[in-house]
Amino acid sequence: MDEELHERVRDVIASVPAGKVATYGDIAGVAGAPSPRMIGRILSEDGHDLPWHRILRANGTPAPHLAHRQLELLRAEGVPADGQKVDLRRYRWRV
């Protein structure tokens, strides 16, 4: 992977403010990444120091293996979920 793209993705994720969420696709679009899956890969390999919990799937849900912790962190920032789904119309970050 291109290191410049990798850093651009990290920068975009880091800029998602507390109290807002973005989708993997949103991040890919802003960073110019070829796919949302690349965003997930970057987060899993190099996202420990980023606000990874603010990045959701396109339907407003967290990845199943992260759901409990991710929703807990989002609630602490004032982003509630209805079940396991965040209202993207209300909480989605707009660049």
Rank of each mutant, 00 (worst) to 15 (best):
V79A: 00
R89A: 14
V86T: 02
H68S: 13
L56T: 01
M1H: 09
A22L: 08
S35L: 11
R94L: 11
Q84L: 03
Q84K: 05
R8F: 04
K20D: 13
S35A: 14
G47E: 12
A14E: 07
E4D: 12
G78E: 06
P80R: 03
A58Y: 05
D82E: 10
E72S: 05
R94H: 06
P62V: 06
A33G: 13
L74Q: 11
G47S: 12
E45L: 07
L56F: 04
P17C: 00
A18L: 10
V12N: 07
A67D: 07
M1C: 10
A22H: 09
P51C: 04
A28Q: 09
R8W: 11
V95W: 05
A63T: 01
G83Q: 03
I42A: 03
L88M: 13
R37H: 13
V30L: 13
N59R: 15
V86E: 00
E72D: 07
R90N: 01
R69P: 01
E3L: 11
G25Y: 04
V12R: 08
G60R: 04
K20E: 13
S15W: 03
E72K: 08
W52A: 02
Y91M: 02
A81E: 00
S35H: 12
E4N: 06
A31T: 08
I39W: 06
Q70H: 10
E4C: 09
P64W: 01
I39D: 05
R37I: 10
P34S: 09
Q70S: 09
G40P: 13
E3D: 14
R89F: 11
V9T: 09
E7R: 12
R92A: 07
A58L: 10
Y91D: 05
V21E: 08
P36S: 14
L71W: 00
G83T: 05
Y24D: 13
P36L: 12
S15L: 07
R89C: 06
I27F: 15
M1P: 10
P17E: 01
R41C: 05
M1F: 13
V79Y: 00
L50S: 02
V95H: 11
V12M: 03
A63G: 02
